[in-house]
Structures are given as C-alpha cells and as structure tokens.
Amino acid sequence: MSVDSREGYDKAFDHVVRLRIMSILMVNESYDFTSLKLLLQVTDGNLASHLRHLEQAKFVKVEKSFSGRKPLTSYRLTQEGRKAFQAHLDFLEKLILQNKSFKSSTTNKQAEKY
C-alpha cells in the first residue's frame, strides 16, 4: 500500500503545472477554471488534463455551479490532497536541511585537516 501511495504521489507532483495547481489550491479555498488558466498560462486542454489527473488521484474535487447564466467550474483540495501536498512540502524542507548539514559537515571535515 505504501508503494502505491508513493506512486500516486509521484504522478501527482512530477509535473510543473500540477505542482502549481496544488500550490494555488492550498492557499485559496476554491479557484475557478478560467482564473487557473489565466494564472498558469496554459491551454484549456492542457489544464483540463492535469486537473483530471489530480481528480483521479483524489487530491482535487470539482464543483460545478452557475454565475448567473454562465457555467462556473471551481476546484478545491480534498483532505487527502492537502495532506499529500503538506507531506511534499515537509519532504522538500527536509531535503534542504539535509543538504545544508551535509555541506557544513564536509566543510568542518576539511577545516579539521588543517
């Protein structure tokens, strides 16, 4: 099961646009399709396919409503999506800290030689 969740994790975040979508939805309760498109500068089809991927991974849920007569499609993160993205952020921070301590430990070793 953990291998599967790591696999789903990969696919969800290994594309720039998907990572950006997740970032946007993390700090906005919901965001509509057109605003996503304008902000991300991608085509309708491109955006739709990425959103579908995230929906299938159960990270994002769709809400269809109307703004007057115009149909409005909005997206928001699911609990799992939020957890997965937070885990991804924690993972990145851990990696950055590891790199920093690795660098400082190697420079310490070099200093000890002299």
């Binding site: 720039v16 990572l19 950006r20 970032s23 946007i24 993390m26 700090v27 906005n28 965001y31 902000l39 952020l89 990145l92 921070e93 990696l95 950055i96 790199n99």
Partner: peptide, 15 residues
C-alpha cells in the same frame, strides 16, 4: 529543492 519550494511560494503569492 530550494527552487521547487521557491516556485511553490511564488505561485501561492501570485494567486
């Protein structure tokens, strides 16, 4: 990882 985190934060701010 630093670049990716920066890209994420930038997207959050811009939205």
């Amino acid at each position: 990882p630093e670049d990716e985190l920066a890209a994420i934060k930038s997207m959050m701010e811009r939205s």
